[in-house]
């Protein structure tokens, strides 16, 4: 009884196989490349299964990150995972890519803040804290201007661990706001691990949580630009009329 987990939400592509009975991670592949996930995801899955001497029949569940991150990347993972789930009649579990990254800080005593650059001085982020071996949300995941985000984090008055390769871009600003209270993940802690995704999915599976349906869609955390602009314009017109 194995679970296959895949994550293509960011530059990091991760694939892991987890044993649902022994609760052991059997294998994990991570790359951190600006390279096409579309080309490499399926061959990586195939290769990992082959190396572990597993066939598709050994799989009992699947897991995928639902975003946020790169729109195209997330869709490659979600489409692949839910198609496999349907074709093999397997339950599919999803987890936020921020939660998966936050799990690297599960032993940290304080707040854990994973983040991905969302451009224009904004970040995809959330504030987490470890509780009973799980990451729980202290502030909800959102796309937010980095300064106002740091303002909110500062108000929590706790030590904070920042995680993710993109943190480096905001390091100076973070230190300006939080000073000594901020600490930063080291290289390996900054990559989301697919085995953590597998672990999160294993917990859902063992708690008999309902799996995702065929219409499962990513959680981008924000509207498309076209929709946002349309709403802005539309809202304005309504305001003018009223």
């Amino acid at each position: 009884m194995k679970l296959l987990a895949m994550d293509t939400s960011t530059l990091v592509m991760g694939v892991a196989v987890f044993d649902l009975e022994t609760k052991r991670v059997l294998g994990e592949v991570i790359t951190n490349l600006h390279n096409n996930h579309s080309v490499r995801l399926m061959p990586t899955i195939e290769q990992l299964l082959t190396e572990l001497d597993l066939s598709l029949d050994d799989l009992h569940a699947l897991a995928v990150t639902s975003g946020p991150g790169s729109y195209t990347g997330i869709r490659i993972g979600v489409t692949t995972a839910k198609t496999m789930a349907w074709a093999r009649e397997l339950p599919l579990y999803s987890e936020s890519s921020l939660t998966v990254l936050a799990m690297n800080g599960i032993r940290f005593d304080g707040l854990v803040v994973p983040l991905f650059d969302a451009r224009r001085r904004r970040v995809y982020s959330g504030v987490f804290a470890a509780k009973d071996g799980e990451m729980t949300e202290v502030l909800p995941q959102q796309v937010v201007p980095v300064e106002s985000w740091l303002e909110q984090i500062k108000a929590l008055e706790k030590p904070v661990l920042f995680l993710g390769d993109d943190v480096e871009r905001f390091r100076q600003t973070i230190e300006e706001y939080l000073g000594e209270r901020a600490s930063f993940g080291i290289g390996p802690e900054n990559l989301p691990r697919p085995s953590h995704l597998a672990w999160a999915a294993y917990q859902k599976w063992s708690n008999h949580e309902p799996p995702e349906h065929a219409d499962f869609a990513p959680n981008y955390l924000q509207l498309t630009e076209a929709e946002a602009n349309w709403l802005k314009k539309h809202g304005k017109e309504e305001g003018e009329n009223g």
Binding site: W86, A214, D215, P218, E225, A226
Partner: peptide, 19 residues
């Protein structure tokens, strides 16, 4: 056609349509 809007809709529908 707005490409990003199209992609979002495709991913939502694809499995159901194949089924």
């Amino acid at each position: 056609v707005v490409p990003e809007v199209a992609s979002r809709r495709h991913v939502e529908r694809i499995t159901i349509i194949v089924q």
